[in-house]
Design a binder for these strands. Sequence first.
RNA 1: GCCCGGGUGGCGGAACUGGUAGACGCUACGGACUUAAAAUCCGUUUCGCGAAAGCGAGUGCGGGUUCGAUUCCCGCCCCGGGCACCA
Length: 816
Amino acid sequence: MDVAYKPEQVERKAREYWDDNRCFEVDEDPDKDPFYCLTMFPYPSGHLHMGHVRVFTLSDVIARYQRMQGKHVLQPMGWDAFGMPAENAAIKRGVPPAKWTYQNIADMRGQFKRLGYAYDWRREITTCKPEYYRWEQWLFTKLFEKGLVYRKNSIVNWDPVDQTVLANEQVIDGRGWRSDALVERREIPQWFMKITAYADELLEYLDKLDGWPDSVRSMQRNWIGRSEGIELSFDVEDEDERLTVFTTRPDTLMGVTYMAVAAEHPLATKAASSDPKVASFIEDCKKMQAAEAAMETMEKKGMPLGISAIHPITGEKVPLWVANFVLMSYGTGAVMAVPGHDHRDWEFADKHGLPITQVVEPLDGSSIDISAGPYVEYGRVINSGFIDGMTFEQAFDAIAERFAEDGRGRRTVNYRLRDWGVSRQRYWGTPIPIIYCDACGAQPVPEDQLPVVLPEDVEITGVGSPLKDMPEFYEADCPKCGKAARRETDTFDTFVESSWYFSRYACPDSDTAMLDEREAYWMPVDQYTGGVEHAILHLLYSRFFQKVMRDVGLSSADEPFTNLLTQGMVLKDGAKMSKNKGNTVDPGELIEKYGADTVRLFMMFTAPPEQALEYSDDGVQGAYRFLKRFWTAVHTHAECDDVPPLDIDSLSTAQRDLRRKTHQTIAKVGDDMGRRYTFNTAVAASMELLNAVTRFDDSSPQGTAVIREALNAVVLFLSPIVPHICHELWEVLGHETAVVDERWPAFDESALEQELVEIVIQVNGKLRARISVAADADKDAVAAAALANENVQRFIAGKDIRKTVVVPGRLVNIVV
RNA sequence: GCCCGGGUGGCGGAACUGGUAGACGCUACGGACUUAAAAUCCGUUUCGCGAAAGCGAGUGCGGGUUCGAUUCCCGCCCCGGGCACCA
């Protein structure tokens, strides 16, 4: 054997075969069984990183495996091309975002091709192209017509020095990343999509998504945060308007000792006008970040407004506070506080010397010390007049009824989910198709004027959006009255592009409609793969868009992704790879050194998909070494060219053992790849089989026949993972057809039969011996054999046997 | 802070439905081949005691259920992801 493994040659040959034969280009064939295999498309940052290689390899393995199962597999690829990094690069290097992005796409496409992914490149999508985003603009105008979009004020991070809006990521310790100025909260008008109109459906359908991990469904359920409660209103002294609050704990109503409103609440604004201390407090509240994590971890501060609400039952005065932890954008911007039975209220009351009263006691009647901490469980109501003695449910109903009668309240359902703010004060994004007219207000751009094209030749300064300085962009005529009007210069959140791209792959060239009839052939996606970090936002927005597309008649699918696989990150030295930490590894270099197959194998073997994967140079070496062994084993065997057909009945015990191993492995690897998605154990099992073949020293005709069967199997089931080397080795094994067109091997049940099985013997649950018994031995015989064992006798001698547990084919446990 | 994960040898991991803890790979060590090195091949490798047979301990920590717990339950600790403008 003088053929050395040269990855670059082997891989080029396989690639050329796939390209020449257009192996991965698929059309809509009604006679075939379609399987849509999709990966979350990448942001074209310019260079491939290890995370990309991992997720795209995972998806590719699934696609190739399904193809071997006879499915008509679509696997497309595209680019999530709008986003901040392009603007940042433009500021840094003076290159326009469009130019930078297109160059990156070209570079990355080349790297992907080198990795041998089975993509139908004819369907490539680039979201920053007008052919793509025009349909997104079109859908927005449809939503506008349906009343599913609206404009309202909301809070952004404002950098007072750079005069620009910052992303949460660009705020570091409360300061702007470039200017280092203290960031302020600023309210500006922005467009919102009514995702809350679909809250119930998004929640209900989670139960039907049984192809999704429970963890993701659970995160989404909590994110939507449906809660049933009562909305009730309190009169406020010297005010005409009542103060409305939402509570899920009306049973604690008599325990309200104060109330709190958000800094932006009208009552707070009013109090500030006459009280400079309140005014300065509200001013301070503006200097905090918009991110929820920052809100939750910051010090809880508040200040009395000097006015009181009137308790709706007792008529007593309840002091009104302004507090930094109450959000104007969530609920009504006001809360009732029950410090006796809520953690946050208790801490706030404790700090500010507000009264804490107990109105719920444990159902078992035990006493609690409310001054030491709140009691937050459901219990029995006390100290509460007409609801005394009631359970939570009884009190809930009683309060609901009472308030409904006097028109002060109603049962209602509240969601934690907020509407989706889609406006961004950035240049590099899809222009929001709206024209503002002084006379007619905000008007959607009519269909025949779409797309609103983003000018690509611009200069980025880092101060505001260049669109605001381009009259040729923003000057427009009102679509309704024709008078001079002003075009919206904000662009969409880039999550909008990624909320429907999966459908567009079905018909990327459709220029008369957003989606055409081909959508129905491929959608929904059978297998979607991507990082866990997208478990909530991207996946929830996509689910929302799918339902919207369904409701405007573009699709009949309720959900976009039938099965979801969330993959873990790639780490080095226990930390996420990042330029800051200087611990990045360039997959391009590895591919050059070892070939694509080695990198693919390393990724699949090192950890199961859902877990974080720790990078190691030695691990890559190991993968390369295995491929060399694999290569040598197949070539060595291929030298014996007179391999006869298998004659199962004539096999020796050793030959039968190897054949059993082959068929056990076929079963195991099929299960690992098809059901469990544990590609690491599939590879391990393949290695074991190859090790068994290498150790099997038998050059008799039937010996080589058994080896041939084993090697054929190994090449077949490694072909989704390391497709290039398997393409070559399949040919070396004498096959006329390409491995890419082969079916998954079938396993022979009869090959698995065994005469003897090993049984473990325990005494009191501790391993004491192993014995070999006939596979069909009955329980009593196995127990008797176990008792007869010498070492077992040492441990049971002189003791009474209390119990004997026999698990057939596995173990015996003798309890003394 | 809240929600969701994870924690097993020197390292990555395996043990799928409560039934042999450490498969497979890496590292390290010993050996073969070689003038030498690389590559390759063979062997050992959870820890402690022991010449060996074997014994004891052991899956983040503390408890519990069970004949039997890495696996189920309760309470902690640590690490990671998400928290609505990173994608």
